[in-house]
Design a protein around this nucleic acid. Structure first.
Ligand SMILES: [Mn+2]
Ligand SMILES: [Mn+2]
Ligand SMILES: [Mn+2]
Ligand SMILES: [Mn+2]
Lengths: 153, 153
DNA sequence: TACATATTATAGCAAGGGCTATATTTTGAA
DNA sequence: TTCAAAATATAGCCCTTGCTATAATATGTA
């Protein structure tokens, strides 16, 4: 039985219960974001490679991510199933409209966060590094707060 | 063969190579951080439960995280292997010194980030939510920049 | 054109986090 | 003290990301 309805133990205040539910929702959502983070990174990188060289090859993705080639192949297969990516055997990888949209949003968040961290006095290299992780966990509201700060200064 | 030493394709500028290596390192490190994120959450939560009730029970951890009980049992077994946690069968879970240290650091980062986001004008509930994800991806330098900002205002 | 080399695919392994169903143990209330 | 209910453990499943080794294909150059 669910511990929330256990009458035997300490009875939390209704404020605390609200807080717990909120926290649980945050945990749930963050587990989801952790999964989506990999998609973001792949799609943003693919967009980047296409912008620079016209196509995204498996080797290049693997090299940039610091991961073995079969790992990339497998993730790309999933992204293909999910309609994020187009590819033929032995050919380069391209983005669908859905994939491109996610890539653009990811890049946007990435850039804002790097700019923001630098504005906070963080070293550019470290800002870039931290942004690679933070970008996946920033809500629209927080991103807007960052943008507002950048406008303000 | 590694694509970085491929002479046939476009030859990147040495600045670009440096940037690529930096990015690859960021990706590698962030994959590591993604794993450690779960440890942080568990240990911080266990510390929280111990502070409030004197012990951390599997049910309570599961309930708070919004996860099934066997999932918690399995993760706790790993944390035990890793020396972060102490537990006997059918008994509550406690922290080792190593585990407590990580929990304290996690809580510290968590609090700083919540305060910082609120100082940036983010709604408290959203700040709490975003912090739950961001906390795992903030370097010491960035955290200090946040603290410096909080001191400044 | 032929073939060496680079690239991609496939097979198969490990570990981790999630789940449900079910067995076992603890515990509080009658 | 007993026993039903709560808590925990265990078994067994799925899916994902990572890896290495190796097979298949593409491609540029001789
Ligand atoms: Mn990233
Ligand atoms: Mn990014
Ligand atoms: Mn967290
Ligand atoms: Mn936290």
């Amino acid at each position: 039985m669910n511990r929330t309805q256990n009458k035997v133990q300490q009875i939390p205040e209704s404020d605390d219960i609200q807080k717990m539910d909120t926290q649980t929702e945050a945990f749930r959502h963050n587990r989801e974001l952790r999964k989506l983070a990999l998609n973001d990174d792949y799609l943003e990188l693919i967009a980047d490679l296409i912008a620079k060289t016209g196509e995204a090859r498996t080797v290049d993705i693997a090299c940039r991510l610091g991961v073995a080639q079969p790992t990339v192949t497998k993730v790309i297969a999933r992204l293909k199933r999910e309609g994020m990516v187009i590819s033929e055997p032995y050919r380069a990888i391209y983005l669908t409209d859905a994939g491109r949209l996610i890539a653009e949003k990811a890049k946007h968040r990435h850039q804002i966060i790097v700019s923001f961290l630098m504005a906070m006095g963080v070293d550019p290299a470290i800002a870039e590094h931290d942004a690679e992780g933070i970008e996946h966990h920033v809500s629209t509201e927080t991103l807007q707060a960052f943008m507002a700060f950048l406008d303000r200064i």
